[in-house]
Write a protein that binds this DNA or RNA. Structure first.
Lengths: 166, 166
DNA sequence: AGCAGAGTTCATTTTTTATTGAACAAACTC
DNA sequence: GAGTTTGTTCAATAAAAAATGAACTCTGCT
């Protein structure tokens, strides 16, 4: 007996406000708004919610809900709850900031820093082949600075994690 | 005698590579790629460049170049250079990381944190009107946590600035 | 004043990204 | 094993964001 969409109560004013805050929040982080809606509704719900709950209450498609939950799982931002007596999976929001920050850094930040480092390596090869000595010197200086920025970026991540996570 | 687009040399391999790195970089920060192209070309150029230089060498429109430069100026990421004998404005990249980070935080991060705080304030009013005492308690706990996150967010910014800016 | 160069603005177009929903697969039920 | 429920995938569509370019403003020059 699947829950029909009509069975789900509309969002309360409080729920809508909380979701709104999280939609903004994830947008700042470069994630789609639907991800913020899902996390926001879980965050403001006392009990765990199923995929169909999210679809029904937020009025989003099953596809969006499924993809959004996958992303949130990869970030460690939702917890799966097994309920006995049903094979439906329920979800609740993980609310430990350390965990959230760590997941975001691991999944969304580090990959970019790493691909950047690879690119800088290739760039250095190109610069080695620069014939004009003056230009080569200039390029070397700029790339060194860039590497310095990236090194600082890598170093600041654990500092942030430590600072934010309690 | 305005420079025609055909006068500008095509991008060298090195230039293309550097620009590419910055395009990725600004995308991670949620800024349009053209902004990365502009900053990247300035970063890899020894001399200051005019708007028409950027248009010609990057193959972007004057509109894009103008808007991108405005954004970069607001971040403090480019410096305007007045040249005598011409009323054209030239630009060079600001390469002080402290300045760049500070500008980004001021222009792109703080406004969101502030609007978030406003929204949390309104949310607290809504929660005060919640009749169910149990629910009100739950909501209070969640909002308190959210405020805590935002407070940490505000506190981490100067730490990052200090850490990144030399 | 009239013209030309430099740059900005913003309505339109293009491109990119997010969302949908139908088809599919997997897991359970009877 | 046929039917049902639950969830996933991905091609198609819708929505959002970025880029364009023509019209405009402003400044300086003669």
């Amino acid at each position: 007996m699947p829950e029909a969409e009509e069975d789900k109560p509309a969002l309360s004013e409080i729920e809508r406000q909380v979701i709104d805050i999280f939609v903004d929040g994830v947008r700042v982080l470069g994630l789609p708004g639907s991800v913020g809606e899902i996390y926001g509704l879980l965050y403001v719900s006392r009990g765990a919610q199923s995929l169909d709950d999210l679809v029904g209450r937020l009025g989003i498609s099953k596809g969006s809900a499924s993809q959004g939950l996958r992303l949130l799982k990869s970030l460690g931002a939702v917890r799966e709850i097994e309920m006995e007596g049903t094979r439906r999976t329920y979800f609740e929001a993980a609310v430990d900031l350390k965990r959230l920050v760590g997941g975001f850094i691991r999944e969304q930040v580090r990959p970019h820093l790493e691909s950047g480092q690879t690119k800088v390596g290739l760039l250095q090869e190109s610069i080695g082949a620069e014939p004009d000595a003056e230009m080569r010197k200039f390029y070397d200086e700029r790339v060194e600075r860039l590497e310095n920025w990236m090194r600082r970026g890598r170093m600041v991540l654990p500092v942030m994690q430590k600072f934010l996570g309690q």
